[in-house]
Amino acid sequence: MSDRTPAPITGLKDLKAALQLAVGLELSTIPVYLTALYSIKDGHNTETAQTIRSVVMEEMLHMTLAANVLNALGQTPSVEPVRFMGKHLHPIPSYPLTNPLVSGIGTLQLRPLSPDAIDSFVAIEHPLHGAARAAEIPLGTCVYRTIGEFYEAVRTALTDPAVCKDSDFRHLNQVPDTQYYGGAGHVVEVKDRKSAQQAIQTIIDEGEGLPPEKLEEAAKSVTDKDKLRNGWQMYSHYARFRELQNGRRFRTDQKAGDEPMGAMVLVDYSAVHPALHVPRNGDTEGGTESAALIEFDLAYTRLVDDLYLAFSGRKKDVAYRIAGRQVEELKPALPLAVHGMYALKNMAVALMRTLSPASPPHTLCPRFSYVEEGDREKLGEIAKELRQDGG
């Protein structure tokens, strides 16, 4: 272990690559949280479900904010790998994920709601990922120890005219605030250096990248912009997950680093589907169960593509029938992607209610596996064959 200061971002090319990876970093936590959320049986753990859902929606906001900064610098958000700090890194996660960018968050795993899952959520959102100081976190082959170090490097680069000139920023392909809904905070349309810094600061304030000194501030501290549309004020992801971990709310006079001592939050870990994640290359299910897993992967892939379409500032060509005729219309892609996430939930819940032939009494677990374009048609055909054989 070393006290070595993380390398700063010194050029525009690396800054753009960092922002591509920021979109992917935010995406990487969403399936982890969704797996726990979707594993909750109907009618149970409503407070826990609301907490996890609120964080997921803000991760969507953070993806949008990073994409808006990237667009303003003239670079289209992409699922393709990038070169950053001499490393070849892929922004699209594959699980289990050992993040090659940030070492402190450890391995991200897809698992149902459990004490271990909540512990991992707390570690992800903790300013030092559970360590007492950054130097205690092994850097390994990663670029940064903490998400905070990463976003501080991005924020610092955005302030430096030697990295990006004022003329590098343009109001280009922005996702507007009117297209985002369901969580706290607001989308910042980036047009200059100041609004770019504001967008990144919003990500930091809501969760990822909180500096360690925030642990000494009020646990339920909020910014004026960190509110739900109905005016309800939210607080950091770390504090929200810490409440689930301890089974109690923070009192208003407590610090974020304290143990919550307020009203009880009941978390029933028995009211959860016992889903077991098996990576795509380890699939041994066969039959209709395997077909369902593949169909989920393809649906998730379409969702990710729709998100990146939205982040590029483009609209989606939607075809439908009305009054007996075929109609095609360009619609904003982000609301469609959010609706796609709700449709994906139904598929995930169905999987989690299906016993795994390979590992009873476990149930199937959604894999959130992004399928490369060249493999999609073949996998679709395999799923159809498996359905026919199992029918």
Rank of each mutant, 00 (worst) to 15 (best):
G374A: 14
G207W: 08
V267C: 10
Y300W: 15
R193N: 06
V188S: 09
L336N: 06
Y308P: 02
T288M: 12
L21T: 03
L228H: 12
Q233I: 02
D253H: 12
D42N: 10
H362P: 03
A299K: 03
L386Y: 02
G86C: 08
G287P: 09
I118H: 04
P31M: 01
V55K: 15
Q179F: 09
R155L: 15
V122C: 09
E58Y: 07
E217V: 05
G182H: 10
T288F: 13
E243M: 15
V56L: 14
A49C: 08
E58C: 10
E373L: 07
D42P: 08
V55N: 09
S270V: 07
T48F: 03
M60S: 07
D166G: 12
H126I: 13
K315I: 07
A157P: 00
S356E: 03
R321I: 12
G11M: 01
V338N: 06
G183V: 07
K316G: 11
Q20F: 05
A36F: 04
M261Q: 13
C365V: 01
S270P: 00
D14Q: 12
G11H: 10
T46F: 02
E206T: 05
A17N: 08
L89C: 04
D116Y: 00
T202R: 15
N281A: 13
L307W: 12
I124A: 00
A218E: 02
E80P: 07
Y95E: 09
F250I: 05
D3I: 01
G130P: 06
E59T: 01
E259F: 08
S359H: 13
A135R: 12
Y144K: 01
P274G: 08
Y180L: 06
M85G: 13
Q254C: 07
Y320M: 11
T35N: 14
D205Q: 14
S78V: 05
A153M: 09
G106F: 01
I92L: 13
A239G: 05
E377T: 09
R376P: 00
G74T: 03
N71L: 06
G287C: 10
L386F: 05
S78K: 06
E80V: 10
L61R: 15
L110M: 10
V327G: 13
N68G: 09
G313M: 11
I200Y: 03
A134P: 00
S312Y: 06
L330A: 12
L355R: 15
R111K: 14
E259G: 05
T98V: 07
K220D: 00
V278H: 06
P115V: 04
E381K: 13
E206D: 06
M264D: 12
S369W: 13
Y320A: 08
A157L: 08
A123K: 15
G86K: 04
T76C: 03
R242F: 00
V23K: 04
Q75V: 12
V56M: 14
R193P: 02
H90Y: 08
L65K: 12
D3R: 15
L19Y: 07
A333I: 02
M85Y: 02
Q233D: 00
